[in-house]
Amino acid sequence: MTHRSDRLGEDPISGLVNALRRLPGIGERTATRLTFFILHEEEGIAQDLAEALLEAREKIRLCQTCCNLTDQEECVVCRDGRRDPSLICVVERIQDLRAIEATGDFRGTYHVLHGLISPLDGVGPDDLHLRELITRLQDSETREALDEVIVATSPTVDGETTALYLQKLLSPFGIQVSRIASGVPIGGDLEYTDRVTLARAIAQRRAM
């Protein structure tokens, strides 16, 4: 813990190192390297970085429809008129949305929960962005166009729990709710697939 009095006496170099260290995935060595990079390069870098940080922080907010990040009222996916309104894919985090977008194969829309249910971590259903999803479904035009909600949370206890909760929550709407499949990776070797995944893949096999 840094006390306030220490902070006031902190020199600017360690101040920057410590600020950078608070970012995820950055330890002391990386923070020090970044600090000296910023100090050695032309002044423009520090200026650009500072402005970009503040601007992003100020302008980026949650899309009012799907809770993706955006600098407008609606995110780039929701604004895109060519997206298929019959499918909503529910994901835990923005990173998951980006991963699915990167496949280029999904043409529906998204809903980002920003978390998973986990009583152990003190996260309950009310802490997720579920209300926005319900509000969305209550809109008759959206509901009319919608055929299916795909729950793409991870196959962990929290991911499963959240998926099952969504299934219950959405049942009054009479919409098809489906779960992403889990199984053997494409191009992977059966021999090297972990056993629980393989056992599940066999249990959940499909007819051909």
């Binding site: 249910i117 986990s118 009583p119 152990l120 309950g124 259903p125 729990t161 909760y165 219950k168």
Partner: peptide
């Protein structure tokens, strides 16, 4: 089990969950 126990300790238990 741990999550279920944590839920049972909450003041108001969400029956659906």
């Amino acid at each position: 089990l741990k999550n279920r126990n944590a839920l049972l300790k909450e003041e108001r238990v969400d029956g659906g969950l």
